[in-house]
């Protein structure tokens, strides 16, 4: 080992940063080299000079006090920031909730008014079908005749049920136009009471409860099932018409 190689490692030796093998190598060289021995003595001397506790800067007592109160301020500020964050998120949540409720109300009003318009159209259509002797386009009591008749005339296939056994006789089918679209009108007869059933694909719920109403002396029942919107209208009494609607939904 040469003096050059030792020059830096001798510092690591003095700092006790070398392993045993390396330490032994350096020490061996130093023992046989006067200038390195002198350098080593200087390093130790220098180390103890700089190590002198008198050279250390002691923090003033006030610094620790200042630090502690700065930390407390910081904690308080964070707590305030957090609580104001909670407050703001509460306000934001309230605004969103109010907006959602308002939207739901408006949407349901919209739906109601849309249903009002449809109901009016249904009544007109029902009355017209009776006036003009144009109750059916396809007069048939056979569901297997009525159902295929709609093919190619509508973009959907309306469910057609034969309820003759239950006292509601299928008399035929007809095309009609409700709510800005062509729809299927199925015509049933209960004793002397014709029943018009309007069917078209529903946009909203796949299934919903029946709603009954009376317009110009006619009973109307509306429901959705199997993805279809159903409206039944007749001068038949309400309980029998409701029974009829149950049969159709079975």
């Amino acid at each position: 080992m040469t003096c050059n190689e030792t020059a830096v490692l001798i510092h690591a030796l003095a700092d006790r940063e070398l392993d045993v093998v390396k330490s032994a190598e350096i020490e061996e060289h130093v023992r046989g080299c006067a200038s390195c021995e002198q350098a080593q003595a200087d390093i130790h001397r220098l180390k103890s000079l700089v190590h002198d506790p008198a050279l250390r800067f002691i923090p003033p007592k006030s610094l620790e006090r200042q630090l502690r109160s700065a930390l407390r301020r910081e904690v308080k500020e964070n707590a305030r920031a957090q609580s104001s964050w909670w407050r703001w998120s509460f306000v934001a949540a309230s605004v969103i909730a109010i907006a959602a409720v308002a939207w739901a109300i408006v949407a349901s009003l919209d739906r109601q008014s849309a249903n009002e318009v449809i109901a009016a159209q249904i009544v007109s259509s029902h009355v017209r079908s009776l006036m003009a002797q144009h109750l059916t386009d396809v007069p048939s009591s056979d569901q297997h005749t009525v159902k295929p008749w709609f093919d190619g005339k509508l973009d959907f296939s309306p469910p057609v049920k034969d309820l003759t056994q239950r006292g509601f006789v299928l008399t035929g089918g007809r095309l009609d136009y409700i709510d800005n679209r062509p729809v299927a009108a199925l015509v049933y007869q209960r004793r002397q009471h014709p029943i018009n059933v309007f069917v078209w694909p529903s946009h909203g719920d796949a299934k919903s409860a029946t709603q009954a109403s009376v317009r110009q002396g006619y009973n109307l029942i509306r429901w959705t099932s199997a993805g279809m919107e159903w409206w039944a209208i007749s001068d038949l009494n309400l309980s029998e018409l409701q029974q009829f609607s149950q049969f159709l939904q079975e």
Binding site: R56, F57, P59, P60, L63, Q66, L67, A70, E74
Partner: peptide
């Protein structure tokens, strides 16, 4: 704190070390 202040004071070489130490602790 002692080690922090001593190092800062030796690096900065003036009394502003106090402010720097406080900033560092925060």
């Amino acid at each position: 704190l002692g080690a922090a202040y001593n190092l800062a004071r030796w690096l900065i070489r003036n009394d502003e070390a106090e402010d720097v130490v406080q900033e560092a602790f925060l």
